[in-house]
Design a protein around this nucleic acid. Structure first.
Lengths: 322, 322
DNA sequence: GTGAAAGCGCTAACAG
DNA sequence: CTGTTAGCGCTTTCAC
């Protein structure tokens, strides 16, 4: 910048004005400066700018795993909003490990991101207290923070979705409906279990519930166990996209009435088509990012809690009779 | 930091030493400093550190679309390597628009990323010249840069994969094999077309080739046109994952011998299973990132050009007779 | 073992 | 319309 200034025969500040498109520079001078910039191949050093202005124009995003289509859809939506606001996105996957989630969030904070969107893996976010007090806006997406933190959240209606699935299957004559859910420590898994349980009422039977990591072997074993009962399930409700696919694989082509939570590509091309309770990951990302930027633009209202609707898409598997 | 120093009754430099774990600090002093850090909730300002040291510990990644499973798999692998080296990842999607690719790359450069991994959308990368001369390492993944740039690349063996697909179908008795490819301006699409054409030899018939954006309507129209020929195709080779899925949808359940380039989740669960030429997006990301860090660690050898193998996975659709 | 001083490249505040 | 000055928070250099 100093070089550009002396090359153009002006002061530092004038170069700064031109680079930042600030008004009040003689067009001829500006042109001279621009020429010097081109000639020297100068480009503004953002690090210095950030240090001076105190804002990094960077947003941090912590998700569970970019390679999961749900989170990659969410990421893309966040990215588009962030770039639309002239910012950049630092993103990282926690791999469902609370310790890593914390490390990533703290690293992002040390980099002074302007705001954070977090899909939490852990359930204790007291460590965020200082950052929040310092004024960094944080939005939790998909899952709420641990107790004691009053921040913006964008969740989907997990309990309602589970209830829709159960009601749909009951409407098609099923009374023995099994539930395959993820680890109960995960908020969404617990919520969906609760919704399932409530909608099932007196039909609930804990022998038809299996919660755990979506691994093929355990899912296969659980299904085998359930199907060997005197009163086996006639239908299956799976608690997330990964479990739906794992269950389909474990079933190995045996027909089974099924509704899955989360939509997934090709659900319509399987035979039969897989009925799902669909949420919209892109909408979740967009809403979370929009909310974050409202905070960054000075909206200091009380914490907002957005609940996104889900909807059941019948495709065949959920309409099979017992 | 100043506050910490005065709270601990030491100089700035001593705090710096403690924060950075530099040797040569009296353990008692170090303890006093650490206590002050905890008490004041101090965390190092990375922006200032970056400005002073000249390195950002940040890598930039430009891909086509994070929401595409191929690129999200690649992203995750890059992310893991980057974080393993104590760096952070800025990532963004170009949406297959050369202008946006350039903007993103330039923005990343202005932020002084230590290195770049780019899946290019355009075919002119002269704009990278100054940055490369300035010593910023850049690795191109999935597609090579435009002419005149001698940089590291990590590609998969597109032509060989296409040839494998064609040979496989020919081996199962097909002589009329159609090809559905992406826009020919995309490197991988062009390479796969070339491999297909070469492996087909005198059987090549341009009426069985359709190149373009993977939209359901155009794919459907092209398939209809081809199938109405006097000598219609008996098998189909699709040029990427998106096209395979689109073609399956366009076929609407009609059986068609098929091999697709790129593996995709659930390919094994469709009926029949979809035979594919699989590449490994995670390996591509890992290799590209490893190469980038070798450059960052001072490897100044000539540009490397890694060619990753692909392999055909038979699942049923590619073994159907004419 | 510790500290003082200089300066990374930029922008904010103010002066001309 | 243009320039000068100070300083963002840290690390580097060198002196004690």
């Amino acid at each position: 910048m100093k070089d550009v200034a002396s090359a153009a025969g002006v002061a530092l500040k004038t170069v700064s004005r031109v680079v930042n498109g600030e008004p009040g520079v003689n067009p001829a001078t500006a042109e001279r400066v621009r020429a010097a910039i081109d000639r020297l191949g100068y480009s503004r050093n953002e690090s210095a700018r950030v240090l001076r202005r105190g804002r990094t124009s960077t947003i941090g995003l912590v998700i569970e795993d970019v390679a999961d289509p749900f989170y990659s859809g969410l990421s893309r939506a966040v990215e588009d909003v962030v770039i639309g606001h002239g910012c950049l996105l630092l993103s990282a996957s926690s791999g469902e490990q609370p310790g890593r989630e914390r490390e990533l969030v703290e690293t992002f904070c040390a980099r002074r991101v302007d705001g954070l969107i977090v899909v939490p893996a852990g359930d204790d976010h007291a460590y965020l207290g200082p950052e929040l007090e310092a004024g960094t806006p944080v939005v939790f997406a998909d899952r709420p923070p641990g107790p004691g933190l009053d921040v913006d959240t964008v969740l989907c209606d997990n309990a309602d979705g589970a209830a829709q699935a159960v009601r749909h299957l009951r409407g098609h004559g099923h009374r023995r409906i099994a539930f395959l859910g993820d680890q109960p420590s995960i908020y969404t898994a617990a919520q969906r279990l609760a919704g399932y349980r409530k909608a099932l009422g007196e039909l609930f039977d804990e022998r038809l519930v299996s919660m755990g990591v979506p691994a093929l072997e355990t899912v296969r074993a659980d299904l085998t166990r359930m199907l060997a009962l005197d009163d086996p399930p006639t239908a299956l409700f799976t608690g997330n996209g990964r479990l739906t696919v794992t269950a389909l694989r474990a079933l190995g082509g045996r027909p089974m009435p099924l509704v899955g939570f989360d939509d997934f590509e090709l659900a319509d091309l399987l035979t039969p088509g897989v009925s799902v309770v669909a949420q919209d990951p892109a909408a979740m990302g967009r809403v979370a990012a929009d909310l974050l930027f409202r905070r960054l633009h000075g909206d200091g209202g009380p914490a907002e809690h957005v609940l996104l609707p889900v909807r059941l898409i019948p495709r065949g598997s959920g309409e099979l009779p017992p």
